[in-house]
């Protein structure tokens, strides 16, 4: 037909044009490096050595040495994330008002660039039995050397997750905090609200959605802890996190199927927590945090 709209125009109207093709490399990469391995892992997890469909999952949930890792990891990741948020919010509130914000932000963000292994090594020296920190505490006379144990246990991993996770948590929190119109605080002040009330009635409700997202991202990061749990923790006991269990299954027992199943369980736990937090977020106001138009 002479008056038919050309195919190209019809496709463009549906959002398909030359520019759309630029998505292809990324899509291919995603497919090859994420979707396929994930699908393969999921499939593999249902092909255990004993030949049954759910053998790996049955084994995981019947062996406390395996299923306890879920709670060990939760016991690390949840408190770390909460403490990080509790630290990040006040610091973000202060930094929001600072003129040399960028300098301080740079200093706080530095640990991200160091990597977990370097931080772990540093902590072993600093918090270890012969480290400065320990010796300084001992020299006060208030502690004796044997009562201070900050590495090779729960607290070692806790501290390292705190240090490596804080910059990330802080940066996210800062972006949410600065997104709130400072005029709202001034308005609340003119209406008689003291600082604590301004925080509780104005800032906090507007921050909750952002803090929920921050919590999720920080939590997922902390839940997949591995190097510091090995280097700074007690990987045989109190800090035997779920990623260690997966590692051992894969590279000590050479049971890739079980390792895949553990990875899937790990993902499922993270998903459950994230979905729960996001569901809670829906109970709060989620619109723009500025004073509407203007």
């Amino acid at each position: 037909m002479a008056d038919a709209i050309p195919l190209r125009a019809r496709l463009a109207a549906k959002g398909l044009d030359g520019v759309t093709l630029l998505v292809l490399p990324a899509a291919a990469l995603l497919l090859a490096l994420f979707l396929y391995p994930f699908g393969y892992g999921l499939w593999l997890s249902f092909r255990p050595k004993d030949g049954s469909l759910l053998g790996n999952y049955a084994r995981f949930f019947s062996d406390p040495f395996l299923y306890d890792t879920i709670f060990t990891t939760l016991a690390l990741a949840v408190p770390v994330t909460i403490v990080n948020l509790l630290f990040a919010v006040p610091v973000a509130f202060r930094v929001r008002l600072m003129r040399h914000q960028r300098l301080l932000t740079t200093i706080l963000v530095l640990p991200i660039t160091l990597g977990t292994v370097l931080v772990a090594e540093g902590m072993l020296n600093y918090f270890g039995p012969q480290g400065w920190f320990t010796r300084a505490l001992v020299s006060t006379g208030l502690f004796n050397a044997s009562s201070i144990k900050l590495v090779h246990n729960y607290w070692g991993v806790f501290l390292s997750l705190l240090i490596t996770g804080f910059p990330f948590t802080f940066l996210l929190t800062l972006s949410y905090v600065t997104g709130i119109d400072p005029g709202l605080e001034q308005a609340a002040a003119t209406l008689g609200a003291r600082a604590a009330e301004r925080f509780r009635h104005v800032f906090l409700p507007l921050l909750v959605p952002g803090l929920a997202i921050t919590f999720c991202l920080s939590f997922v990061q902390a839940y997949s802890v591995f190097p510091s749990a090995v280097l700074l923790g007690a990987p045989a006991g109190p800090t035997r996190v779920i990623s260690i269990a997966a590692y051992q299954a894969a590279f000590e027992e050479y049971d890739y199927s079980l390792a895949s199943a553990i990875a899937m369980i790990m993902g499922a736990v993270q998903l459950v927590v994230v979905v729960a937090v996001l569901a809670l977020r829906n109970l709060f106001y989620r619109g723009p945090a500025a004073g509407a138009k203007g």
Partner: peptide, 20 residues
Amino acid sequence: LPTEDRGFGMVFQNYALFPH
């Protein structure tokens, strides 16, 4: 006095209404 103790009403240019 701090702002909150003055008890003046203020209307802001961008209104600064509490969106939530």
